[in-house]
Amino acid sequence: MRIRREKERRNIQIHSKGEWKYQVILIVSLIIMMYPIVYMIGTSFKTLSDIFASGLNVFTANPTTANYRSVFVSNDVLRLLRNSLIIALIVTISKIITSVLASYCLCFMNLKHPEIIFGLFTVSMFIPFSVIMIPNYLTLSQMGLNNTLLGVALPQLADAMGIYRIRQSMRSIPKPLIEAARLDNVGHFTILRRIVLPLVKPAVIAMIIFFFINSWNEFVWPMLILKREELYTITLALQTFMDSESGSAWGSSMALATIATMVPMVLYIFAQRKIIGTFMQSGVKE
């Protein structure tokens, strides 16, 4: 174990030598990507006059927490977080379950024409959201799910993207592994749980992050379904700061945006550790 770590550490060192050019490229792109986020956080600590005075400067001489205080006064932030979280959890958990089960069937069960079924799944990826938005809205209205959190989640319980990605990962599992288990009379659910899932864990975790962030950031669809303010998600609440009449409350808006970003960020940091851990523990290739 210790020897292996040592080896891996040494490999990393060898790689970084003479490759500073790539490091520079990475650092530059990192700055480009991080700047808006840092700017958002910086702005959330500025007064409105400071925001216009400081231009592109992230920092301010007189930081204030007034924006945060006003956000918590004017909004029930916890409720916003809860609403977003309920939708994101339902969507993410459901998408992962359906993707994993569908991928397992496509890869390891004796289906007649798995590639045709898989093709039909992928076709659904190519239909733009704007095309199905109105039909979905009408269907949900008929079902009486307008203005409910479930209504937001319902059309998103399965996702072809997840099937595509997880199937890809499952395909790299050597078939004899599954056959060996079948010879031991291991049922499909046990094979899935004890053999397949541990081996595709990185892909599953990646998809969890992907689905969660997607759902968390969703704006148009919740806006269509949720009209009552107590059902607002955090992205919908952000929009309320944009007011063409009394002027936009930029500072408060950035404060709430910062709070909104924290949740996926924490999830990402936590999950990323898990992914790396899985990679170190085992490789699928023999």
Partner: peptide
């Protein structure tokens, strides 16, 4: 079914569970 035949098998690539 394979599981009901009471056979043990050794595969060419061993098929050990890597995890």
């Amino acid at each position: 079914e394979p599981g009901d035949r009471n056979v043990a098998m050794v595969f060419q690539n061993y098929a050990l569970y890597p995890h």
